[in-house]
Design a protein around this nucleic acid. Sequence first.
RNA 1: GGUGGGGUGGCCGAGUGGUUAAUGGCAACAGACUGUAAAUCUGUCGUGCACCGCACUACGUAGGUUCAAAUCCUACCCCCACCA
Length: 382
Amino acid sequence: MIEQTAPGFKFKLLHGEHCTPRRGELHTPHGIIETPCFWPVGTVGSVKLILPDDLNSTGAQGMLSNTYHLLLRPGDEALTQLGGLHRWGGWKKPILTDSGGFQVMSLATHRKLSEECVLFQSHIDGSKHILSPERSIAIQRAIGADIIFMLDVCPAFEASEKELREAHERTLLWAIRNRRAFAEFPSRYGHDQTLWAVVQGATDLALRREAAATLAEGNDFGYAIGGLAVGEPKELMYPAIAAVTETLPIAAPKHLLGVGTPDDLLSGIALGVDSFDCVLPTRNARHGIAFTSRGIIRIKNERYKLDQEPLDPDCKCACCRQISRSFLRHLYFASEATAARWLTYHNLSYYNQLLTEARDAIAASRFPEFAATKRVGWTENI
RNA sequence: GGUGGGGUGGCCGAGUGGUUAAUGGCAACAGACUGUAAAUCUGUCGUGCACCGCACUACGUAGGUUCAAAUCCUACCCCCACCA
């Protein structure tokens, strides 16, 4: 069995040592995560609309939060005084934090990028905040996340060749500073943290391999694949993922940032990805979309007006056990917050059920067959 | 009975002679969303069709003035307020 350790952490590959898909266990100071797994996104320290207990019952094993947003408020000083996010936010399972690298892209109009750092102008009050590899590590230390990511530069899909190259090179240079800062700044709350590198390179396979190979020399505990699902066609996304997972060390856990749809997860798993995070199940829930084993349901659509079926007859979640599509539609149009809450709860439950089944399928060496039966694309569930 | 105000597309509500099939908002219908500036945003929304265009019907009702009217005039109907 392949296993790698770091203070407070262990990643055990239970299946897929020399091939994909992989089935594993990621031991963290806040519990063991069965991989492949999905991390729901709680940008400001909380998954929107969902209480920690409910998040727990969706089957979520961890939560991803965000450095930039928590820097703006409450700020790292307050976080330190409050004892870190685990203590402050009530979520006791593992926490993963994005470094703020995504905001380099998503908030491109609010930042200035230099060789040294990113200067953000707050989208909330216009105040200025510097995010450098050192600052990002310091803030993630203050948050107390189990897994923290290196500050990277995430290029936009439309980025020019030159911008792409710069983002790639800066990400590699910053990796060194990220590691140094991680070594210099101690963890704060008596539990260990682990630093993962972020691989960029857009859909350029050579660039991806180069980034992965260079970063691998740093012997980081885990790796994240960034800069995908930002608008590029899927035919380009999947090879980019493969280029990275093939190049990185087998023993290291690999996270695919910001992906994706249920089908993307199945594809990612097949390519050797161990974990995912994405806003899709939560954001789309608020926008009236449910993911189901038979396709998506746009609950606003008229055809669900008198539909007494549950969202997904095969789903075991509390929503599918208790209320119908028509009632959800009614709640949605009545602008009841519970509509979005039910849908968020269902979507997260659905994602986690899918991954639980995927892990079982991997363990039973029948993942390809399993995945084939689960792919639904973006077809509508009627 | 008198005086004043008002009747606009499913609803509310702008518009007081000419780029008006008629601003907005709501409702309705459809779509987008992938490390969350998003419980947000976009499109359609009188009818018909050969539907990036054309035709028809529309601003209480009926007439009238005018090259041109939701907008001006007359009558009538209805609603609201106040006064008798």
